[in-house]
Amino acid sequence: MSATISEPKVAVDAQVAQPKQGRLRTLWESMKENKVSYLFVGPFVILFTIFVVIPILISIGLSFTYFNMVQPPSWVGWGNYLTLFLEDEIFLIAVKNTLFFAAITGPVSYILCFVFAWLINELKPKLRAFLTLLFYAPSISANAFMIWTVMFSGDAYGYINGILLYWGIIDKPIQWLQDPTYMMGIVILVVLWMSLGVSFLTFIAGLQGIDNTLYEAGAIDGVRNRWQELWYITLPSMKNHLMFGAIISITNSFAAAGQLQALTGATPTDWATWTIMQHVNDYGYVRYEMGYASAMAVLLFITMVVVQRLVQRLLAKLD
């Protein structure tokens, strides 16, 4: 994973074929040798195990049970998974919506984050800090996006309706957030508007961290314009951060729920903006069927891991 590794001792030890007893001993020896490293990772790993790893394992276990949070879980095997695909029609709608939503917002938000970070990076420091704030501002306020519900409000008080009525383009208000024709489009627009978040900031910090000598060397080696510079120098130096950004885009787009629910309500018309994550929350917190909700979360997790592997393979070609 990491490019620069100083001591190849462990790797060498591991490669030497030994009887089992001996291998365990070597492992123990190299662990003792690296005890400083464990002091460094220790605090986080303990916290991470208690608050992240164990809950995830419990949740995977629960996905094979019926668990209503009152009675103890009862084992149902693959039952939840079968129900999801064979009986739950709304889940299948949610799958379709999520894939559509993710296929658009994932790549577009990713590209937006990089393009804007790259463009802003060229500016003078003060202007750069100011524009970074403007672009990042929508993600800074937890509910700034609620402004859009006023914009697209279905009555004549909504801004878009107000303007269109005033100009005479429409003669009665459009139910922007209740009409399945517009709902998904509006939701995607708002989510993209909010998408310059974590990855955007990381890309900016990452671009700032590229060694200047690389650019100087590039200019000597015959880089002639900013596109060549981007392709031959900037992108390869950003590989770590690009993968990080991809993971953020994948999780945000596949696990979107909150913003959609806030915009189009808890029961959207024809389930037009219903996503897997909303279905998870619905079963988890409204119906208290944790086993079923966990099964969906596991499927979503597998989907994201597969997509992440694909993206990783794509990014590996950047060298």
Binding site: P55, S59, A255, V280, Y285, F301, V305
Partner: peptide, 15 residues
């Protein structure tokens, strides 16, 4: 890496 991709909201109960 993987934990980043597990939906947080089903973890609320174990949590």
């Amino acid at each position: 890496l993987f934990s980043l991709m597990f939906a947080g909201s089903v973890l609320v109960i174990p949590h």
